[in-house]
């Protein structure tokens, strides 16, 4: 019989405590228990990045993290990206540069790009492509995703000056 454990963590600034089977995957807890369905499941094997969330300040693939491993963690999902003043520059960038089509990879792309721009606030095209290599997209050919991330980088850099 599956063992249950209580896990407390913060998601998008909100504290949650859940009782989960030890084998439950973080992506399922987010989607099924917390109803944060922006995070998607694409491949089940940590290749596609659709399930990317930010865990304690690092991008991770939530299909390959156990919820019990997120004890006391800070989690950010796509739902937490927009601030009180509106969309995050990356969200704007994806819209302005047509960085999405079917939208399925988009939440993972955005959350990864959010962390990537903190790791590298002013990346060139090659750096963006390398930094986003853990996220697959089947629709856009990445060309406009690269532009969208540049858009956000420029906007954020301008804002911080």
């Amino acid at each position: 019989m599956s063992e249950q454990q209580t896990v407390g963590f913060t998601v998008n600034g909100e504290r949650h405590t859940v009782s989960v089977p030890t084998r439950e995957l973080l992506v399922h807890t987010l989607r099924e228990r917390l109803h944060l369905t922006g995070t998607h499941i694409g491949c089940d094997s940590s290749h596609c990045g659709a399930c990317t969330v930010d865990l304690n300040g690092r991008s991770v693939k939530s299909c390959t993290v156990l919820t019990v491993q997120a004890q006391n963690a800070e989690v950010l999902t796509v739902e937490g990206l927009a601030g009180p003043d509106g969309l995050h520059p990356l969200q704007e960038g994806f819209r302005e540069e047509h960085g999405l089509q079917c939208g399925f990879c988009t939440p993972g792309m955005l959350v990864r790009a959010y962390r990537f721009l903190q790791e590298n606030p002013d990346p060139d095209e090659d750096q963006i492509r390398t930094g986003m290599a853990g996220n697959l997209c089947r629709c856009t050919g990445y060309q406009n995703i690269v532009k969208a991330i540049r858009y956000a980088a420029e906007k954020q850099t301008a804002g911080s000056v």
């Binding site: 940590s46 990045g49 693939k61 853990g134």
Partner: peptide
């Protein structure tokens, strides 16, 4: 090795 997310774990 792998990709940025996987390298974080």
């Amino acid at each position: 090795i792998a990709d940025p997310q996987v390298r974080n774990r």
